[in-house]
């Protein structure tokens, strides 16, 4: 989206991209987007970002700007508030389309935000996405709370393996911030 002032060249368009995306659960109605801009007008992130525009994301997919959209880091600043889904007059699940693009972006570019690698690492170690400090566990007792539930981190690791997540973690470089 930050690059949309660039000229679009015919050779960078992938005419099948929109069909590829539309087959994925959550993005089925992408082709129905008629660029009204309701998603963007009502998006709390677009209000504070110069670059993040869900309407443009939908148009870029329809045009077939596959490489551009999948390497655009602004995909990662959707807060998943789902307002765009509730307000879309064409019933496009905009936030789900963005999730589909994020998933595809990790595979396509071998890049993901550092925070997800950290959360995934914690999850495999402890079953929680944060490492719960010992002091917290002691304070639970003092506050009269039951012990933390038992976790099965080995099963998390197995879910990661089965669903291809482990490979994504191994293959991906990271970036920290998106302006």
């Amino acid at each position: 989206m930050s690059q949309t002032s660039q000229v679009i060249k015919a050779e960078e368009l992938d005419p099948k991209f929109k069909y590829e995306i539309s087959k994925i659960h959550g993005a089925e109605k992408l082709m129905l987007c008629f660029q009204c801009g309701t998603c963007t007008a009502d998006c709390p992130v677009s209000r504070y970002s110069e670059f993040y525009r869900p309407r443009k994301i939908a148009r870029m997919v329809q045009l077939g700007l596959k490489d551009r959209i999948l390497s655009d880091k602004h995909l990662w600043i959707c807060t998943t508030c789902y307002t765009c889904i509730d307000h879309c007059p064409q019933d496009v699940d905009v936030a789900h389309v963005i999730r589909v693009l994020r998933n595809m972006s990790v595979k396509h570019t071998n890049l993901m935000p550092l925070v997800y690698k950290e959360l995934a690492g914690n999850l495999m170690k402890s079953g929680f996405v944060y490492m719960i400090p010992e002091s917290r566990i002691r304070r639970r007792e003092q506050a009269g709370l039951p012990p933390l539930p038992k976790t099965k981190p080995d099963e998390v690791a197995k879910v990661f393996e089965l669903t291809g997540f482990t490979k994504l973690l191994e293959n991906s470089e990271t970036f920290e911030k998106v302006e």
Binding site: W76, V100, V106, Y116, L119, L123, F128, T163, F165, L168
Partner: peptide, 12 residues
């Protein structure tokens, strides 16, 4: 185990 939500952006 974690509900799973934090991993959704990377792999549904």
């Amino acid at each position: 185990n974690c509900c799973g939500f934090p991993m959704d952006p990377v792999n549904h």
